[in-house]
């Protein structure tokens, strides 16, 4: 565990609490893509199967995994059941098959071992890299976002961004160890946030509303 990794994980936790706070206080999931949230459930469930195979890492690791699975399912419950009327599928139109198809094929080709668990693990890594696309697509379509929603995305982006210095740190402290699948997918994932962060820094953090140029 290094500082980059710890702050990254805390930022990931923060993003979930920000999202829950947004839904609970506004009693609405307006502006949130349920497709992205469903993809996160799939990401966590397929990646954390090692919870059940006895590959114990640490209490911290297991608690975080259980939290991510539980909270992502809870968010789906809020969006699909409790605040269902505030969920507008007509603007959440990114086609999930464009994500699920290619990531499944990638996982079958590029994995560390052709076993059920390893293919699912690689799938979860590729899937996480692009899981934010329906959300960003929705943002692009509506051209604006509530400030709290942009804080949610910023926390997620910081989490992903900090994994990169974490890998660099680990490369030098763990004898040149590198996990190419996670690193390549992670760089792609971080790159997807670049446009968002440009608007976030130049508008939201200056006190303006998040609005995309027409």
């Amino acid at each position: 565990m290094n500082l980059f990794r710890l702050v990254a994980d805390l930022s990931h936790l923060a993003s979930i609490f920000i999202l829950l706070h947004k839904i609970q206080t506004t009693r609405s999931c307006r502006g949130i893509s349920i497709k992205t949230q469903l993809l996160y459930v799939l990401v966590f469930v397929t990646r954390y199967l090692d919870l059940f195979t006895g590959d114990f890492v640490s209490i911290y690791n297991s608690v975080m995994k259980l939290f991510f699975i539980g909270s992502s399912c809870y968010i789906i419950y809020l969006m699909r059941i409790k605040y269902k009327p505030t969920n507008d599928p007509s603007i959440d139109t990114f086609r999930l098959e464009y994500i699920l198809g290619p990531t499944a094929v990638l996982a079958l080709i590029f994995n560390y071992k052709f076993t059920f668990l390893e293919v699912l693990w690689a799938f979860s890594i590729y899937l996480e890299a692009v899981a934010i696309l329906p959300q960003l697509f929705m943002l692009q379509r509506t051209g604006e976002a509530e400030t709290i929603t942009t804080h949610y995305l910023a926390a997620l982006g910081i989490y992903r961004g900090l994994y990169i210095p974490n890998w660099i740190y680990r490369y030098f402290t763990e004898g040149g160890a590198i996990d190419p699948i996670a690193v390549v997918a992670g760089i792609v994932q971080t790159a997807l946030y670049v446009d968002f962060f440009y608007v976030y820094f130049t508008k939201v953090l200056q006190g303006q509303k998040f609005e995309l140029p027409a």
């Binding site: 590959d55 890492v57 590198i178």
Partner: peptide, 10 residues
């Protein structure tokens, strides 16, 4: 390439 000793990333 040498893999990290354990897959501990979340």
């Amino acid at each position: 390439l040498e893999m990290p000793a354990e897959k501990d990333e979340l």
